[in-house]
Amino acid sequence: GLEHMADEEKLPPGWEKRMERSSGRVYYFNHITNASQWERPSG
């Protein structure tokens, strides 16, 4: 619901949600550090 939507907005600075086109899996990418990970970043 709306709570989940708001929660997605609160990623740490630099992080954004991305989708891997080949598999459709969602991952997280940090455009500041060029880091990427499957787990939702905390902090």
Rank of each mutant, 00 (worst) to 15 (best):
G1M: 11
G1T: 11
G1Y: 10
G1S: 12
G1V: 14
G1L: 10
G1K: 11
L2S: 12
L2N: 12
L2V: 11
L2Y: 13
L2M: 11
L2I: 13
L2G: 13
L2K: 10
L2H: 12
L2R: 07
L2A: 10
L2C: 08
L2F: 14
E3I: 12
E3H: 13
E3W: 05
E3V: 13
E3Y: 02
E3L: 09
E3C: 15
E3P: 12
E3R: 03
E3N: 12
E3Q: 12
E3F: 03
H4V: 13
H4Y: 11
H4P: 11
H4S: 10
H4R: 03
H4L: 12
H4G: 12
H4W: 12
H4E: 12
H4Q: 14
M5S: 13
M5P: 12
M5K: 09
M5L: 12
M5I: 13
M5N: 13
M5W: 12
A6K: 12
A6H: 12
A6Y: 12
A6I: 13
A6S: 12
A6V: 11
A6Q: 14
A6E: 12
A6M: 10
A6T: 12
A6N: 11
D7P: 11
D7S: 10
D7M: 12
D7H: 09
D7W: 09
D7F: 10
D7G: 11
D7I: 10
D7L: 10
E8G: 10
E8Y: 07
E8I: 10
E8D: 13
E8N: 10
E8F: 06
E8W: 05
E8Q: 09
E8V: 09
E8M: 08
E9L: 07
E9W: 08
E9P: 10
E9F: 08
E9S: 08
E9Y: 10
E9C: 07
E9T: 08
E9M: 09
E9H: 08
E9D: 12
K10M: 11
K10V: 12
K10H: 10
K10T: 11
K10L: 11
K10E: 14
K10W: 14
K10A: 14
K10S: 14
K10Q: 14
K10I: 11
L11Q: 03
L11T: 02
L11D: 07
L11K: 05
L11M: 05
L11P: 14
L11Y: 03
L11W: 02
L11I: 04
L11N: 01
L11S: 01
L11F: 03
L11G: 00
L11R: 01
L11A: 01
L11H: 01
P12I: 02
P12V: 02
P12A: 04
P12E: 03
P12M: 03
P12K: 01
P13Q: 08
P13K: 06
P13R: 08
P13F: 12
P13H: 09
P13M: 08
P13V: 08
P13A: 09
P13G: 06
P13S: 07
G14E: 06
G14W: 09
G14Y: 08
G14L: 02
G14C: 07
G14P: 09
G14K: 01
G14D: 06
G14T: 02
G14V: 01
W15M: 00
W15Y: 01
W15Q: 00
W15P: 01
W15L: 00
W15I: 00
W15S: 00
E16W: 02
E16Q: 05
E16I: 06
E16N: 02
E16M: 03
E16D: 03
E16L: 04
E16S: 05
K17N: 01
K17H: 04
K17E: 08
K17W: 06
K17G: 02
K17Q: 07
K17V: 08
K17D: 01
K17A: 06
K17S: 04
R18Y: 08
R18I: 07
R18M: 09
R18Q: 06
R18G: 03
R18K: 08
R18W: 05
R18H: 09
R18P: 00
M19P: 03
M19V: 15
M19N: 09
M19K: 13
M19I: 15
M19A: 09
M19S: 10
M19Y: 15
M19D: 05
M19T: 15
E20V: 08
E20W: 07
E20Q: 12
E20D: 15
E20I: 13
R21D: 15
R21A: 15
R21E: 15
R21F: 15
R21V: 15
R21M: 15
R21W: 15
R21P: 15
R21S: 15
R21T: 15
S22T: 15
S22P: 15
S22E: 15
S22A: 14
S22V: 15
S22I: 14
S22G: 15
S22Q: 15
S22Y: 14
S22K: 14
S22W: 12
S22F: 15
S23W: 03
S23D: 08
S23N: 06
S23F: 04
S23M: 03
S23P: 02
S23G: 05
S23A: 03
S23L: 04
S23Y: 03
S23T: 14
S23R: 03
G24I: 01
G24S: 05
G24P: 01
G24D: 04
G24A: 04
G24Q: 09
G24L: 05
G24F: 04
R25W: 04
R25L: 08
R25H: 05
R25I: 05
R25P: 01
V26Q: 05
V26G: 03
V26K: 04
V26S: 06
V26L: 08
V26H: 08
V26D: 05
Y27F: 06
Y27W: 05
Y27V: 02
Y27I: 02
Y28H: 01
Y28L: 00
Y28W: 06
Y28I: 00
Y28E: 00
Y28A: 00
Y28K: 00
Y28T: 00
Y28M: 00
Y28P: 00
Y28R: 01
F29T: 02
F29D: 01
F29N: 01
F29V: 05
F29Y: 14
F29G: 01
F29R: 03
F29A: 02
N30G: 00
N30P: 00
N30Q: 02
N30K: 00
N30V: 01
N30S: 05
N30W: 01
N30L: 02
N30M: 02
N30I: 01
H31G: 05
H31N: 14
H31E: 07
H31F: 13
H31R: 13
H31Y: 14
H31P: 06
H31T: 14
I32A: 09
I32T: 08
I32G: 06
I32W: 09
I32R: 06
I32K: 07
I32Y: 13
I32L: 08
I32P: 03
I32D: 09
I32S: 07
T33K: 05
T33E: 04
T33Y: 06
T33M: 05
T33F: 05
T33N: 07
T33V: 05
T33L: 06
T33W: 05
T33H: 04
T33D: 04
T33I: 05
N34C: 01
N34V: 04
N34F: 09
N34H: 11
N34S: 10
N34K: 14
N34Y: 08
N34P: 02
N34W: 07
N34R: 10
N34I: 04
A35M: 14
A35I: 14
A35G: 06
A35D: 07
A35V: 15
A35Y: 10
A35W: 13
S36N: 04
S36P: 04
S36A: 10
S36K: 14
S36F: 11
S36V: 14
Q37M: 06
Q37Y: 03
Q37R: 04
Q37W: 02
Q37P: 00
Q37F: 03
Q37G: 01
Q37T: 06
Q37L: 05
Q37N: 02
W38K: 04
W38T: 06
W38M: 06
W38Y: 14
W38I: 06
W38Q: 05
E39A: 08
E39R: 07
E39N: 09
E39M: 07
E39K: 07
E39Q: 12
E39V: 07
E39Y: 07
E39D: 10
R40E: 04
R40G: 02
R40S: 07
R40A: 07
R40L: 07
R40W: 07
R40N: 06
R40H: 08
R40Q: 04
P41H: 00
P41W: 00
P41G: 00
P41S: 01
P41C: 02
P41V: 01
P41L: 01
S42E: 08
S42P: 07
S42Y: 11
S42N: 13
S42T: 14
S42K: 10
S42G: 11
S42A: 10
S42Q: 13
G43I: 13
G43W: 14
G43P: 11
G43R: 10
G43T: 10
G43M: 12
G43D: 11
G43E: 12
G43Q: 13
G43A: 13
